[in-house]
Simulated assay, not measured.
Amino acid sequence: MFNERRQASAGEGRKKTLIKRYIISQPSIWCPGHKVIQCEGTPFLWVNCKMYKHIHLQTGSRTGPVVAAVKAEHFRRNFRYILGNPDCTEKGVWSTAHNTSFWGEKKYRFQVPTTGAWYEWRRTHNNELGAKRFGKNSFKLIDANGDVEKVLAAFIYRQSIFGHMHEFGSLDCFEKMEEELEIVSLLVLLGIQNAIRRKSGG
């Protein structure tokens, strides 16, 4: 098992083939909680974050129907997420994204509700994926089912005080994934970015 994981890690340095890219943009630098997610130039999800605590994913527009949500809780390392409108869904169906880092927001494990499969967002500095050496906002998505780790996607943080003020980052997919996994991964990723922002006070 140890050797297999080493082989998987060694293979990670190879250039990945991009099959899909989501662009996450921030319409205003003064409203970091509001974002738009685009695929192939077409907006399809709007992100609204209220008081660092609640994140809603909405379709159609910024005021459209809520299709998923994240709930952060003060003084807790984990956060909860749900597919569907939380106001129309039973309280017990929330899932938990587990912060498994010894310190900070480096690793989060989560499940896809319908399949029970485990995945992990893990901080990366791999320049082959496009990440910066000293950044804290770029993450890779790991398939945590089985002994061999597989990188499915990477979120590359791109926001800068120069140039691309409104581009928050991109989610690059290297493997074909089911739609539910893509949405849950996006949801948990937004929860992680919110946790980092809460901690930094930004």
Rank of each mutant, 00 (worst) to 15 (best):
L181D: 00
K106P: 01
R14E: 14
T17W: 05
V148M: 13
N99F: 02
L152V: 06
Y157A: 14
S170F: 06
G84W: 12
V188Y: 05
N48T: 14
G60A: 02
A153I: 03
S61I: 06
E178W: 00
S170I: 15
P27D: 05
L57A: 05
N194Q: 15
V188D: 07
K16T: 04
T17E: 09
F162Y: 08
W103E: 12
Y119A: 01
H166C: 12
E40L: 07
G13T: 01
V112Q: 02
A195G: 07
E40K: 07
E175R: 09
Y119F: 09
P65N: 06
I55M: 08
E182R: 13
L83V: 11
F102T: 11
I183A: 07
Q38E: 14
E128A: 14
T17K: 08
W94Q: 12
Q159N: 09
R158D: 14
K35S: 00
G201W: 03
T63G: 10
W46R: 06
K132M: 11
L171W: 03
W46M: 02
G130M: 03
D87W: 13
C31T: 12
W94D: 09
D143K: 00
R198T: 14
P113G: 05
T59G: 01
S185V: 04
V151N: 08
G169H: 02
T89Q: 11
V67K: 06
I183Y: 09
G116F: 11
K136M: 12
G13D: 02
R198I: 10
S200K: 08
G169C: 02
L83W: 04
M165I: 14
L57K: 00
G116Q: 14
P86F: 05
R197Y: 06
Y157H: 15
L18E: 15
A72E: 10
S138N: 04
S25P: 04
H164S: 13
S95R: 11
K107C: 08
A69R: 09
H125T: 09
G202N: 13
E12D: 12
K107P: 03
H166Y: 11
F174R: 03
H98V: 07
H164K: 11
M177S: 03
E12A: 10
R133D: 10
A195Q: 15
L45Q: 04
A144C: 02
F139P: 05
G60I: 01
V184G: 06
I82R: 12
H125P: 01
Q7D: 09
A72R: 11
T59E: 15
F168Y: 14
Y52T: 08
G84N: 10
E128S: 15
A69Y: 08
Y119Q: 04
P43Y: 03
N85P: 02
R197C: 02
F44S: 00
Q26G: 00
A10F: 12
E179F: 02
Q38D: 11
E105V: 10
K35R: 07
H166T: 15
F110Y: 15
A195M: 15
G11S: 05
L190Y: 01
F134V: 09
L129F: 12
E180Q: 11
K106W: 01
Q111M: 06
E179C: 04
V93T: 13
D147H: 14
E149Q: 15
Y81N: 08
N194L: 13
R6Y: 08
W103G: 06
E175Y: 09
E180V: 05
M1Q: 11
V67Y: 05
R133Y: 10
Q26I: 03
L187R: 06
E175N: 08
V66E: 01
E178G: 14
I23V: 15
N194T: 12
G33C: 05
E90A: 13
S101R: 00
